[in-house]
Amino acid sequence: MVGALVSVVPLAQGDGFFRERDEADCVQSNDTVCLDWALDNADRYVSPTLEHLLLVGVSVAAGLVIALGLSVLSHRRRWLMPAFLATTGVIYTIPSIALFLLLLPISGRGTTTALIALTLYTLQIIYRNIVTGLANVPDAAKDAGRGMGMTDRQLFWRVEMPLAVPEIIAGLRIATVSTVAIATLAVFAGAGGLGDVIYTEGVQAGVFKTAIVVGSAIAIAMAIAFDVVYIGAQRLLSPWRQVRPV
């Protein structure tokens, strides 16, 4: 609440905490971003950042595994696909903060709830991309594979899945970058992460500008870093897409 935003920075009160007086002044007055202070206190951002990375890494990995499982199922039984798409779509529509809180009575406060919610989110993007990737596999390649005596399983793992890799990575890329952003809200499920820096240390602690800026900057930098990594992975894992057609 705005009313509660009195400018008190409880963390800035211990004595001997700051190396230089003017850094502490900067924090006290809170009318600009205290970059020097942030750098001197860099260690206080390490564990939120690691928590954040963990939330993103685990939920995207779990999302990939579950989405792959769903796609194997819906590949064998086509009628499952609309059901899966609709279900993951509905979950994706629920605003993330609401989803975190809806899970509280079920899985309690903490990292587990956050991971469940974030994983559910990634499902929609990853599953939809796998489905698209599989649908884009040329019919002729599938027919030829079958005609040469590949079993359904061989066709799936040797032809269809590898050809869907570019779309799958594109999906992972979107899912990961979105999850980096959404995971800031995990603070409302009591799961820490960079949301702790932005919200608890920033907004709640009298709108402490430095925390808000630093937390946001780390989150955005993390998203960009993931994006770059995925572009590299894309190149590496789909060499046939890199060639120039005649």
Binding site: A140, A141, A144, V159, W240
Partner: peptide, 13 residues
Amino acid sequence: GYVIQQIGLFPHR
């Protein structure tokens, strides 16, 4: 042996 009009070479191989 199996040959079709659309050839169906595997693009990733």
